[in-house]
């Protein structure tokens, strides 16, 4: 099972422009300050760490840490 801490850790290791905290889990990435290019890096790191494929259709709906956790555990 993947949890919020796992995803937060990945985001903060991806070279993103802002540091993400556990209580940011429900916020949209744009609210936290992560831009589209930050998210490119995040999905590459997540793919590396989990082996899961992140297609364009799936990524469109992954707008927060919570939605990513939900997808990883689906």
């Amino acid at each position: 099972m993947f949890d919020v801490e796992f995803v937060v850790d990945i985001i903060n290791k991806s070279g993103s422009s802002v540091e993400v905290k556990l209580d940011d889990q429900a916020k949209k990435f744009s609210q936290i300050g992560l831009d589209s290019l930050d998210m490119f890096n995040v999905f590459i790191e997540l793919q590396d760490a989990t082996g899961k494929e992140f297609s364009d259709d799936i990524v469109e709906n992954l707008v927060s840490i919570s939605t990513i956790v939900e997808f990883l555990n689906s």
Partner: peptide, 12 residues
């Protein structure tokens, strides 16, 4: 251009 796919390709 599909920016994310091109970015993924280059980064990987």
């Amino acid at each position: 251009m599909n920016g994310r796919q091109v970015f993924n390709f280059a980064a990987l």
